[in-house]
Design a protein around this nucleic acid. Structure first.
Length: 290
DNA sequence: AATAGTCGCAACCGCCAGGGG
DNA sequence: CCCCCTGGCGGTTGCGACTAT
C-alpha cells in the first residue's frame, strides 16, 4: 500500500470549529447550487476548507430537517435494538431515525447509551449480561482452543426494546405445556417479563427470562453429552450446574465435550449470517451470503 | 476562587468501495 | 483491466463546558 496523497492541500486549509460566517457561506452556496462535487465547493463558496470538511459540516449540521434536540426514549429504543442486531453500522441506524446523522447516533451511543447499558450490567458490545460475557472469556481461557461447552453459547440476544422488530428477528417459541407446567423441575417455569418496565429493565428481565429458558434446554443437551444417552426425552432432568460442571472438567482436562458443542467463533459467525439475511433490505445485496 | 477531572459534541483521520476515464 | 478521484463510513481526537474538590 502506497502513501495516499492528502485529499486537499492541508497547509492552506483551515481546520477546527466552524464560524457562523463560514456556515453562512456554505449554506448560501449549497442552497443555490446544490452539493454537486464537494471538492470544488470550498473554492466556489469562498471557504478555506477541505471539501471533505464542507461535506461533513453540511451533512452533520447545516442540512435541512436535522433534529438538534435530545434523543427521545423511542429513539433510544431503536438505537439499542438496531445496535444489538447489526452492530455499529451507524449510517444504517441513522437512516431509521429521521433528522439524525450517523455522527449524532455514534456520539450518543458512545457517551450515553453504552454507559447506560454497562451500568445496568449489560455488555454494550454483545448486549449480553456482563457476567455472562466474563464467563465466556474465562471459558475461552480454560479451553485454550476457543471451544466452549454447548450451554455457554447462547444466540445473540436482542432485548425487548422494539417488540415488533424483535418478534420478526427472534420469535420466541411458545413454551410447551409440559415445560410450562413442570412444577417438579428445580427451575422455575419461564415467565415473560412484565410489560410496564422501562426498556432497560425489560432488557434485563428478558435476559433473565431467556437464561432460564435456554439453561433448561442446554441442560438437556448436556445431559445427552454427559450420560451418553442419545434420546434426551428419555433422560431424567439433570441440573445445568451438574452437567456443565462435568463438561467443564472435561474441558479443563484437555478433552473437548462431544456433540452439541461448537466453536465460539463459529457461533458468532452463524448468528451474524442469520442477522445479515434478516436485514438484507437494509444492508443491501452486497452483504448477502451465498 | 483556582484547579483538576469529566463529559459531550464537533470535527478530523484513515480506510474502503464505486464510478469514470 | 488499471488507476485515480470522490463520497461514505467508523473510529478517534480535540476542545469547550460543566462539575467536583
Amino acid at each position: 500500500m502506497g502513501i495516499r496523497p492528502p485529499c486537499c492541500d492541508k497547509l492552506s486549509v483551515k481546520k477546527g470549529l466552524w464560524t457562523a460566517e463560514e456556515d453562512a457561506k456554505l449554506l448560501a452556496y449549497v442552497s443555490t447550487h446544490g452539493t454537486g462535487n464537494w471538492t470544488t465547493v470550498p473554492k466556489k463558496a469562498g471557504l478555506k476548507r477541505c471539501g471533505k470538511s464542507c461535506r461533513l459540516r453540511w451533512t452533520n449540521y447545516l442540512r435541512p430537517n436535522l433534529k438538534h434536540e435530545g434523543f427521545s426514549p423511542q429513539e433510544e429504543e431503536l438505537i439499542v435494538t438496531l445496535h444489538a442486531t447489526i452492530g455499529s453500522r451507524w449510517s444504517i441506524i441513522a437512516n431509521q431515525l429521521p433528522g439524525r446523522t450517523d455522527n449524532d447516533v455514534k456520539n450518543y451511543w458512545n457517551t450515553k447509551l453504552s454507559k447506560k447499558l454497562a451500568q445496568r450490567g449489560i455488555d454494550p458490545v454483545t448486549h449480553r449480561p456482563i457476567s455472562e460475557v466474563k464467563q465466556s472469556i474465562t471459558s475461552l481461557h480454560i479451553s485454550g482452543a476457543g471451544s466452549v461447552p454447548a450451554g455457554k453459547l447462547r444466540p445473540f440476544h436482542v432485548g425487548s426494546v422494539n417488540r415488533d422488530l424483535k418478534n420478526i428477528l427472534f420469535p420466541k417459541p411458545i413454551p410447551s405445556p409440559q415445560t410450562a407446567s413442570s412444577s417438579t423441575s428445580s427451575l422455575l417455569p419461564p415467565q415473560p417479563p412484565p410489560q410496564d418496565l422501562d426498556w432497560i429493565d425489560q432488557l434485563l428481565a428478558e435476559e433473565a427470562f431467556s437464561c432460564i429458558d435456554e439453561t433448561e434446554s442446554h441442560a438437556k443437551e448436556a445431559s445427552v453429552v454427559c450420560t451418553g444417552v442419545k434420546d434426551a426425552a428419555a433422560l431424567p432432568y439433570v441440573s445445568w450446574e451438574q452437567c456443565f460442571g462435568k463438561a467443564e472438567e472435561e474441558v479443563v482436562g484437555g478433552g473437548m465435550v462431544a456433540g452439541g458443542s461448537s466453536s465460539f467463533i463459529d457461533g458468532i459467525l452463524d448468528r451474524d449470517r442469520e442477522i445479515v439475511a434478516e436485514f438484507a433490505s437494509l444492508l443491501g445485496d452486497n452483504y448477502l451470503f451465498n
